[in-house]
Design a protein around this nucleic acid. Structure first.
Lengths: 163, 163
DNA sequence: TATATTTGCGTAATCAATTACGTAACTAAT
DNA sequence: ATTAGTTACGTAATTGATTACGCAAATATA
């Protein structure tokens, strides 16, 4: 992705973010394997969330993780198969199925913590090497679009041109 | 993805990059639709590349775009169906199938250019709003990992802890 | 209380991209 | 000139996530 694309600059922010994200996620997967832990990066958000929140319904999780609810069901299915997560029907609301970490899931935590510490440390090295901090940049983008969405900004730009 | 995750910082660089990338890509798709142009963001890299390079083989493209060659074949199939891309067997190397923009594909370019200009402009606004430039941050990350991969850095960190 | 609407969940179909594998054409080495 | 190895491409299977759809429970409304 050099030469031709170097001049594109802002036009391909999306693709470049995706490429870097894929790269990091893949490296993360490698790392779990190298440590002999049968854990996949995609499980992290759900697992981590449950490790902090005791019990949560499918939709609550989907919202907190900002993914679709079928994705949550799928991830939960995998973690249940591993025996790390169990579910119970809610007594207050019969529609809800509550997820939580099983004992086995909780007992795995310390081992994962160590790995997460390592990942965090290397990521910190990345960030510290930067004169321009990627996390800060992301933070700023999130705030920027929270105040007004990309699509809205597009519309406004269109209108401003017409004048 | 607030509260629980806010303290994670560097641990979830990957997920956050992905989330932002997804967001921008989706907005891009919306924009094409709103302009009544039947073009998908995923086609952009291949289309744009061909608009600059005349003729290219599948593998050349895969390398330049940093995607797998089946992905190129798939994208090409779609663009061929649209009538924007044609292919010919290479005379120098009978294994190669060369892709290029068709006349129809070329004639679409000016219209797309206008849209790309708009996208570029709004993205520029994003970047200019930032005290910390996301493109610069990405650039730095790319350089950082080009000199030594994430996995290598992981290994080194592991070793340094043992001492 | 009956009815309409919303909410929570599950399944199915679809999508975009990958890995794995096979085949044919080219290249290098003997 | 054979053989071995590499390269280019295509297909199939898999992955990870989404949207679309439907059902049942809860909530709001008449």
């Amino acid at each position: 992705m050099q030469d031709v694309f170097s001049k594109l600059g802002p036009l391909i922010i999306g693709s470049r973010l995706k490429r870097m994200s894929d790269y990091i996620m893949r490296a993360g997967a490698e790392f779990y394997t190298s440590k002999g832990v049968d854990f996949e990066p995609k499980w992290f958000p759900l697992y981590y969330l449950l490790s902090h929140e005791k019990e949560l319904g499918i939709m609550d999780i989907a919202q907190k993780l900002n993914i679709s609810h079928p994705a949550v069901i799928q991830l939960a299915k995998e973690l249940e198969k591993k025996g790390w997560v169990t579910s119970t029907k809610s007594k207050e609301d019969a529609r809800k199925r509550l997820l939580k970490l099983s004992k086995k899931g909780i007992s795995l935590l310390p081992q994962l913590q160590l790995i997460w510490d390592d990942i965090r440390e290397v990521n910190r090295q990345v960030v510290e090497s930067q004169s321009t901090n990627v996390l800060k940049a992301l933070e700023e983008m999130e705030v920027f679009f929270a105040s007004k969405s990309y699509t809205e900004r597009m519309k406004e730009f269109q209108d401003s041109k017409k004048k």
